[in-house]
Design a binder for these strands. Structure first.
Ligand code: FES
Ligand code: FES
Lengths: 161, 161
DNA sequence: CTTCCCACGGATATAAAATATCCTTAAATT
DNA sequence: AATTTAAGGATATTTTATATCCGTGGGAAG
């Protein structure tokens, strides 16, 4: 099991979009060029983010995407769930029901103990993602990425909005 | 992203194998019949558990598998990692390196901040799984599964060892 | 010693999901 | 009116998951 590469793209795109000045937009083309990924496929990820209400798009020249909310209101989980979906990573097929010793009277009012553990682990994963916001990421980047690169990148983005 | 169904099979198989009396074995055939899953494919999961040192198999009639360690020495993580592998669920493709503003002198001594968060979430997932042992599962089952079903199931297993 | 049962592992087939491209539509800008 | 762009449907390609098949050799039982 491995997460889709769309996650990495979407997370980095949201990070880039936080450079976009208010009332302006950055196009899919620019985002695809910046990350060197296929534009048409990246478009699908951005559409998912749009449907999730994380970014908003507008048409026409000078159109594109921008964040729909403040970076402090967008968590990693929001973005990952827009790409991967909200369903648990563990799918219980109720294999326990195949136990040949079971009779019809054995009802399953409680979920399987195995599934409960797996779902708990899934929740722990999501909780970690929920605990990190886009604003936290920006702060970390400021501390770890060379200032000149950050500056140039910001200019590059603003230049195309 | 969804975990393989082998995980559910392997976890339930380990649970069943904890019924096996010392010095005896339960065959793949019996495990497949018990869970109503294809024997040949289940065999692959059991081989993975065997290679991970969670179960041990023996050949010949009256052969099969049994747990290689005490249930209190086997965690959910051991089993899941035997099936899914130990690698992180998030694959970073170093997309940041495609930033057109980068120059050769920008080295990446530290991993990307995005990847660090995703790996932290992966670690949280694994930590939860590491925190539950097969012995804990047995205890939970004792509390939630009707006593008569547990007893019949145990007898079914012993009958085939 | 012979026969049968079994784990083990390689090879292959099928189904499903991820990745990627193509194309049409309609809205916003110039 | 012409151009740029998001939106989304359709389709193709690649990879992974699921499943089956078969050969090998070890171990138990007669
Ligand atoms: S029946 Fe699905 S995890 Fe137990
Ligand atoms: S470069 Fe891979 S997550 Fe940032």
């Amino acid at each position: 099991m491995i997460l889709k590469n769309q996650n990495e793209w979407a997370l980095h795109c949201c990070s880039v979009l936080s450079w976009v000045p208010p009332e302006r937009y950055l196009s899919t083309k620019a985002l695809a060029e910046f990350h060197d990924v296929p534009k048409e496929y990246l478009s699908k990820a951005l559409q998912a983010l749009s449907q999730a209400g994380i970014v908003e798009g507008t048409l026409g020249p000078s159109g594109g995407y921008r964040l729909a909310r403040k970076p402090s209101d967008i968590t990693f989980l929001d973005i990952v769930e827009a790409i991967e979906g909200k369903g648990s990573t563990f799918a219980c097929t109720e294999i326990r029901k195949n136990n040949p010793c079971r009779t019809a009277k054995h009802c399953d009012n409680k979920p399987c103990a195995v599934a409960r553990v797996m779902w708990e682990a899934d929740a722990a994963w999501r909780n970690t993602l929920r605990g990190v916001r886009l604003s936290d990421l920006a702060k970390t980047l400021k501390e770890t990425v060379p200032a000149d690169l950050l500056e140039k990148t910001g200019a590059w983005v603003v230049d195309r909005t």
